[in-house]
């Protein structure tokens, strides 16, 4: 299991790096899906099989499909790729990279203070998860449902056409 984790971590890192640097949105999306699948594998190795399934189904499935639909609706032509290249000169990367690197170094320094006990690979099965979720976190579930409802209403409202009801 341990090597699988490191391999999938490497895949996730590379796929993410590609996803954010592509000029073509659809390519980026595909890279992102790869990254999400790799994270799902990591979940599996960390003893969260149910979450791994959700990651694949909801993230890589539903949410990415949303992105694809929007791409379709926007109907961006090939000239957008050129435009993306113009928007991304190499020097534009410098500042964000420096900032992210500094932040990463800081996080690493913080993690250096954490003693690193090995993770027990024991899986937490969906039954346990469900007990906790609908027991102790019932209010959280309600809040999440409200949030989703608000998201639906908000999207429906924002998505209406100009002048239309």
């Amino acid at each position: 299991m341990v090597p699988i984790f490191y391999v999938s971590a490497a895949v996730a890192f590379l796929a993410t790096a590609l996803a954010i640097s592509r000029a073509n949105v659809v390519h980026g999306l595909l890279d992102l899906i790869v990254s999400l699948l790799a994270v799902a594998v990591m979940f599996l190795t960390l003893g969260a099989p149910f979450l791994a399934a959700l990651e694949v189904i909801i993230y890589a499935g539903a949410i990415m499909v949303l992105f694809v639909f929007v791409m379709m609706l926007l109907n961006l032509g090939p000239q957008t790729v050129e435009q993306e290249r113009r928007w991304l000169p190499p020097r534009a990367w410098i500042t964000p990279f420096v900032l992210a690197a500094v932040l990463l170094v800081e996080v690493v320094v913080v993690l250096g203070g954490v003693d690193g006990p090995a993770l027990a690979g024991e899986a937490i099965d969906p039954r346990q998860l469900g007990t906790v979720l609908f027991g102790r976190y019932a209010i959280g579930v309600e809040l999440a449902s409200m949030l989703l409802l608000a998201g639906v209403v908000g999207a429906a409202h924002l998505g209406r056409r100009e002048g239309g009801a």
């Binding site: 900032l99 500094v102 932040l103 800081e106 996080v107 913080v110």
Partner: peptide, 16 residues
């Protein structure tokens, strides 16, 4: 967003 990041960096640095 850059401003937010800088803020996060500074605050983390202070914590560290």
């Amino acid at each position: 967003a850059t401003g937010l990041t800088l803020g996060a960096i500074v605050i983390t640095a202070i914590v560290i």
